[in-house]
């Protein structure tokens, strides 16, 4: 085992902790957009698809390469577009500040 793989394992372990921490404070109302958003992020496999397709030789490999690029592109664009569609609907009322304090006083009373 060389130092290269150790460096990748270090990145892996640190990223696992970051992933866990960054998500632990998400309110449940955003769980669906979050699932969809993280779904888009693993579309980064498109990068691997490009590298794989880019070094392919011969009709079989290139055909498979094109398929893998299609699949990964679907993951990326589908993921981000669906998430954006969900989130663009999370609009506050224009006067949300006032309304919020309104409901708070109501709750207090």
């Amino acid at each position: 085992m060389n130092s290269g793989i150790l460096q990748f394992i270090t990145v892996f372990v640190l990223a696992a902790f970051v992933g866990y921490e960054v998500i632990s404070k998400v309110p449940s109302i955003l769980h669906t957009p979050l699932m969809s958003g993280t779904n888009a992020v693993h579309g980064i496999i498109l990068l691997g698809a490009i590298l794989t397709c880019g070094v392919s030789h011969g009709p079989l490999q290139i055909t498979l390469g094109i398929i893998v690029v299609i699949l990964a592109t679907l993951n990326v664009v589908g993921g981000f577009v669906v998430t954006d569609r969900m989130l663009e609907m999370f609009k506050a009322r224009p006067n949300v500040q006032r309304e919020k304090s309104d409901t708070q006083t109501k709750e207090a009373s």
Binding site: V11, V18, G19, T38
Partner: peptide, 14 residues
């Protein structure tokens, strides 16, 4: 690795 692991870890928690 970073992107995949972020999703892997957060997905487990979710």
């Amino acid at each position: 690795i970073v992107a995949g692991t972020l999703v892997g870890a957060s997905g487990m928690l979710l």
